[in-house]
Design a binder for these strands. Structure first.
Lengths: 199, 199
DNA sequence: GTCTATAGGAAGATAGAC
DNA sequence: GTCTATCTTCCTATAGAC
């Protein structure tokens, strides 16, 4: 077999793990299933990672980065504040509709991390990052558009984060795209109501 | 040992399973851990249930009922529509603050069911029940108080369900009661804005 | 009905030949 | 670096004595 660096193999194994988990769930992602997906031997796994937990730590970090990146890009663009807010929400929402399994996986990983003593911190960090990303989004909107929110930023951000999370979860479990989209439309309108009315 | 009916044992095992899962997570709830918690022999398990999956089916049904019951009681009480809506939300919220592990468990079970071929239907049913309960809540509010909602009931209900779910999930992961409560206060105000203004 | 003993298999991790 | 064979442990499920 090809001689790959340990670093390269680590990357391949993390990617393979994400594919297996997305397809079959976290519980089914055994070391054997992962190395099989990556077309490696079982021995290669423990040559690259000290334990399965070490792999999972890397998987969680990789997934969180993938989720955070698009959210930050949305923000930079033209349009007034209302358009941008709606566009941001809808861009995220389209990603949920197109890639439900990926989002399902992030929730599974959060729970897995919460229940794994060595990874519990990661679950907290994951959510802190969501909140931080959304805070930057809301503050940038305010700064660019010179508007104000009628509620404290911390509260607004938690409300926004919760609505996004809740609607995603609802769609993942109900799989009614039309109904969920109507609800997120309502959520967007409700958020815009929190903008201070221009005098 | 005492001679118990199979039905009684089934009840005891389901309760024991819920305790183990609440404490240690679904993945840790092995048949051995459950019978140990119930103070039974391993053999008793397979005398009462054909398989572990059959137990889990019963666990999910039991948990869903427990969650749905308080929500229905909240509804029957005095007060105007605004008070009742706020009181309902806050009663649920207090339960989340007091028993986070129980709510954590319901999310875990939903995921477990989703990933288990024989139980996948149960996950859908669970969410359909949440929606149905919330629909009854909203319709009863409307009927009792003779007010109208400014959005379709189906959309309102999904929005409500999502906000509740999202804030619960946020609290479970962030564990900041103060911040999450401020957000649910905001959510309650936002919901009340969807009532048609009395002329 | 109740329990112990055990089958049968899959998991994570390791040893050691190449 | 790579891979096979194996160790140990834990799982669900069953068999069969009492």
């Amino acid at each position: 077999m090809a001689r790959l660096s340990a670093e390269e193999r680590r990357r391949l194994l993390v990617d393979a793990a994400i594919r297996v988990m997305t397809r079959d769930g976290v519980a089914q992602a055994t070391t054997r299933a992962i190395v099989s997906e990556a077309d490696m031997s079982l021995g290669a796994f423990h040559y690259c990672f000290r334990s399965k937990e070490e792999l999972l730590e890397n998987v969680i970090v990789a997934i969180t980065e993938r989720t955070a990146l698009p959210a930050q890009e949305i923000l930079e663009g033209p349009g007034d504040v209302e358009e941008k807010l709606r566009a941001s929400l809808m861009s995220y929402w389209q990603h949920v509709l197109d890639h439900p399994a990926e989002h399902q996986l992030t929730y599974e990983l959060t729970q897995y991390a919460t229940r794994t003593p060595g990874l519990a911190d990661l679950a907290r960090t994951q959510y802190r990052n969501y909140l931080k990303t959304n805070t930057r989004l809301m503050e940038a909107l305010r700064a660019n558009a010179d508007v104000a929110w009628t509620v404290p930023t911390e509260t607004l951000v938690r409300y926004l984060t919760a609505v996004i999370d809740g609607l995603t979860l609802l769609f993942l479990n109900e799989r009614d795209a039309e109904a969920a989209t109507a609800a997120i439309d309502l959520a967007a309108r409700q958020l815009l109501n929190l903008l201070a009315q221009p005098a």
